[in-house]
């Protein structure tokens, strides 16, 4: 865990021709295999930072580097998102027309693998999420916790180096929140992935080994927890 997988240099993002400044010169470095929580009040810029780290958007100024390659120039954003990043959203964002197992295969459609291999990999991931009996269900037939587990399996489909989760427990009750966070940290430690979670829940943020607080588009604090090895609880 010594090499930075992501580096952010003087990142700025503004909207409406500069009238709204979401990020005002953020710089940070995230190591490979690190678990980082980003928190802050609404409108602080935490989700904007996550979008820029995930290559969903481009900064107004500054750079995001993935393994020393500048996103959007040295490495294409589409390639970065498809091969190196997995997204987990608060609202799950599953395709309503597809079964759970088909949803997990969606990111793999652009990957050079046979349909049979893709399906087998999706099946294995859903089993890992404890959804072996729910594979053929459509999203509207699944509970909120199950949907988020399908979304996690989907995020892992292309075996990314980084998992980005935007309020992953925002739509879940406390039991399911705890289970999802346990799953995410388990995956992070088992696979050695980098996990970046944006949350407004202090308990989750404080339980992460590293906690970055954002306020008014700037980093307010960036600290490592004394109980870094502990698993977070909702």
């Amino acid at each position: 865990m010594t090499n930075p997988i992501l580096e952010v240099r003087d990142l700025q993002k503004s909207y409406d021709q500069g009238q709204i400044e979401a990020l005002r010169g953020v710089s940070l470095s995230i190591l490979a295999g690190e678990y980082v929580a980003i928190s802050g009040p609404s409108g602080s810029g935490k989700s904007t930072l996550l979008q820029l780290l995930g290559g969903l958007d481009v900064p107004t100024r500054g750079q995001v580097l993935f393994r020393n390659s500048i996103l959007g120039s040295s490495i294409g954003l589409d390639t970065y998102r498809s091969q190196h990043v997995g997204f987990i959203f608060q609202a799950f964002h599953l395709m309503p027309t597809l079964r759970a197992i088909e949803n997990v295969q969606v990111p793999m459609l652009g990957v050079a693998a046979s349909a049979k291999d893709r399906a087998a990999h999706a099946e294995a991931l859903l089993c890992e999420m404890g959804l072996e009996h729910r594979m053929s269900q459509y999203p509207n037939q699944l509970s909120a916790g199950e949907r988020q587990r399908v979304a996690i399996a989907r995020a892992l489909a292309n075996n990314p180096a980084i998992l980005l989760a935007d309020e992953p427990t925002g739509n879940l009750d406390s039991v399911n929140s705890a289970r999802i966070m346990e799953m995410l940290t388990g995956i992070q430690s088992k696979r050695g992935m980098t996990l970046i979670v944006v949350t407004h829940e202090n308990e989750i943020a404080n339980s992460a080994p590293r906690h970055i607080r954002i306020r008014d588009g700037r980093i307010e604090s960036d600290g490592r927890s004394s109980h870094a090895s502990e698993r977070p609880r909702a």
Binding site: L56, D78, F89, V106
Partner: peptide, 8 residues
């Protein structure tokens, strides 16, 4: 979502 999942 498809774009976020890396679809070109």
């Amino acid at each position: 979502i498809l774009r976020a999942l890396g679809w070109k």
